[in-house]
Computed example of a mutant assay.
Amino acid sequence: MAKGYVIARVEVTDPQAYAAYARVSAEAARLHGGKVLAKAGAYVELEGEARPRNVVLEFPSLAQAVAYYSSVEYQAARAKRAGAAIVDIVAVEGVDEELGA
Score class of each variant (00 low, 15 high):
Met1Arg: 14
Ala2Val: 11
Gly4Pro: 03
Val6Trp: 01
Val6Thr: 01
Val6Ile: 11
Ile7Ser: 02
Ala8Met: 09
Arg9His: 11
Val10His: 01
Val12Ile: 13
Pro15Gln: 10
Ala17Met: 08
Ala17Tyr: 05
Tyr18His: 03
Tyr18Asn: 01
Tyr18Arg: 03
Tyr18Gly: 00
Ala20Tyr: 03
Ala22Val: 00
Val24Glu: 01
Val24Met: 00
Ser25Met: 04
Glu27Thr: 08
Ala28Ser: 09
Leu31Val: 08
Leu31Gln: 12
Leu31Ile: 09
His32Arg: 03
Gly33Ala: 04
Gly33Leu: 04
Gly33Arg: 03
Gly34Asn: 03
Gly34Ala: 01
Leu37Asn: 07
Ala38Pro: 04
Lys39Leu: 03
Lys39Asn: 03
Lys39Gly: 04
Ala40Phe: 09
Ala40Trp: 06
Gly41Arg: 10
Tyr43Arg: 10
Tyr43Asp: 08
Tyr43Asn: 10
Val44Met: 06
Glu45Cys: 08
Leu46Trp: 04
Gly48Val: 04
Glu49Phe: 02
Glu49Asp: 11
Ala50Thr: 09
Ala50Pro: 09
Arg51Leu: 12
Arg51Glu: 07
Pro52Phe: 07
Pro52Trp: 07
Arg53Gly: 01
Asn54Ile: 10
Val55His: 00
Val55Arg: 02
Val56Met: 07
Val56Leu: 10
Glu58Phe: 02
Glu58His: 07
Pro60Ala: 07
Pro60Lys: 05
Pro60Glu: 05
Pro60Phe: 02
Ala63Tyr: 00
Gln64His: 07
Ala65Trp: 03
Val66Gln: 05
Ala67Arg: 02
Tyr68Glu: 01
Tyr69Gln: 00
Tyr69Phe: 09
Tyr69Pro: 02
Ser70Asn: 13
Ser70Trp: 05
Val72Phe: 10
Val72Ser: 12
Glu73His: 08
Glu73Ser: 05
Gln75Asp: 09
Ala76Lys: 11
Ala76Trp: 01
Ala77Pro: 03
Ala77His: 00
Arg78Ile: 04
Ala79Thr: 12
Ala79Glu: 14
Lys80Asn: 07
Lys80Arg: 14
Ala82Met: 14
Ala82Tyr: 10
Ala82Pro: 06
Ala84Val: 10
Ile86Met: 11
Val87Pro: 03
Asp88Phe: 11
Val90Ala: 13
Val92Leu: 15
Val92Lys: 15
Val92Pro: 12
Gly94Tyr: 11
Gly94Ile: 12
Asp96Val: 13
Glu97Phe: 15
Glu98Asn: 15
Gly100Ile: 14
Gly100Gln: 15
Ala101Cys: 15
Ala101Asn: 15
Ala101Phe: 14
